[in-house]
Design a protein around this nucleic acid. Structure first.
Length: 282
DNA sequence: TCGCAGGTGGTCG
DNA sequence: CGACCACCTGCG
């Protein structure tokens, strides 16, 4: 299978990127590479470190991709043209907590994911755990998604389109075991079919099954609004432990994030999320 | 058995 | 508004 290789890649660690909670279709392989399906393609991503001990500088290998794929899809998807080194410096300045979080998740990048797939994924994610979210998404793709090119001899499916999902009934999704999220998904698909894809936080938050947390995730990961700061249980945990907030004071946390991190709130959230999950297990 | 998992919608006061 | 609370499902 053909590979595309990018030399001298900085601030890129597959483990950090795919395990900081922003995506659900990338899976770790025994050798530490990650295989995933995005933008209609399935690839395996690996980072070879050129200088020993320098995990944040190396050779990025994308298996099953051409140069054209890279230029058209992966350069943007992996946000390759943004200088995360600069962002990390800025976030770490005068914030010891963030400095440590940035150190632990030094190779995090915010993926530019497909908006509709982000909507579907994060509606499924609510009040749910990550292994089950991943399972639901795979089952949903296999049930109602378009078949993509096989990968390593296995069938691969994309997530169902707006039209497909809008044409289905909640009962049709029973095999996916979405529970009460199934009707949310169908309703949202019909709303999007009617109104088009959302373009602002307000339009996102108007969708069915989308509250403030999910809306911020969609805004951050689907629209790449880097100021969006999703507050979930893990962020509440890290904000109370590290910054002394009351666990229930979500508004206070959001205000703090806006004032301290500003336009970089979403990136800061990812470092914090990865950091607390690293220390608190799971 | 029961609480929990990357919350949300509905209902009250 | 803000505080509750039920809610599919599967796992420990």
């Amino acid at each position: 299978m053909n590979e595309y290789i990018i030399e001298n890649v900085r601030d890129f660690n597959p483990e950090h990127i795919f395990d900081c909670g922003q995506c659900f279709r990338w899976n770790r392989q025994p050798d530490g590479a990650y295989t995933g399906t995005a933008m209609g393609k399935t690839v395996t991503v690996r980072l070879d470190c050129v200088e020993s001990g320098r995990i944040d500088k190396g050779r990025l290998i994308i298996e099953n991709a051409t140069e054209e794929d890279y230029e058209k899809i992966w350069r943007s998807y992996f946000d390759m043209d943004r200088d995360y080194g600069l962002i990390k410096e800025e976030l770490s300045r005068e914030d010891p907590v963030m400095k440590e979080a940035v150190k632990r998740g030094s190779g995090i990048r915010i993926l530019k994911q497909d908006l509709w797939e982000t909507i579907v994924s994060f509606i499924i994610s609510q009040n749910n755990n990550i292994p089950r979210i991943k399972g639901c998404i795979e089952k949903l793709a296999a049930l109602a998604g378009e078949r993509l090119e096989d990968y390593r001899g296995e069938a691969v499916y994309g997530l169902p389109s707006v039209e497909k999902l809008a044409s289905m009934e909640a009962e049709d999704l029973a095999p996916v075991r979405l529970g009460y999220r199934a009707p949310y998904l169908i309703k949202t698909a019909r709303m999007v079919k009617e109104r088009g894809l959302p373009e602002s936080y307000e339009q996102i938050a108007a969708l069915c099954g989308v509250g403030p947390k999910v809306a911020n995730c969609i805004s951050l990961f689907g629209l790449h609004n880097l100021s969006s700061f999703p507050v979930d249980v893990w962020v509440r945990r890290v904000m109370s432990e590290m910054y002394g907030f009351d666990e229930k004071d979500v508004k206070g946390m959001a205000k703090f994030a806006d004032e301290r991190f500003g336009d970089l709130g979403g990136i800061a959230q990812q470092y914090l999320f990865y950091y607390i999950r690293l220390t608190k297990g799971e």
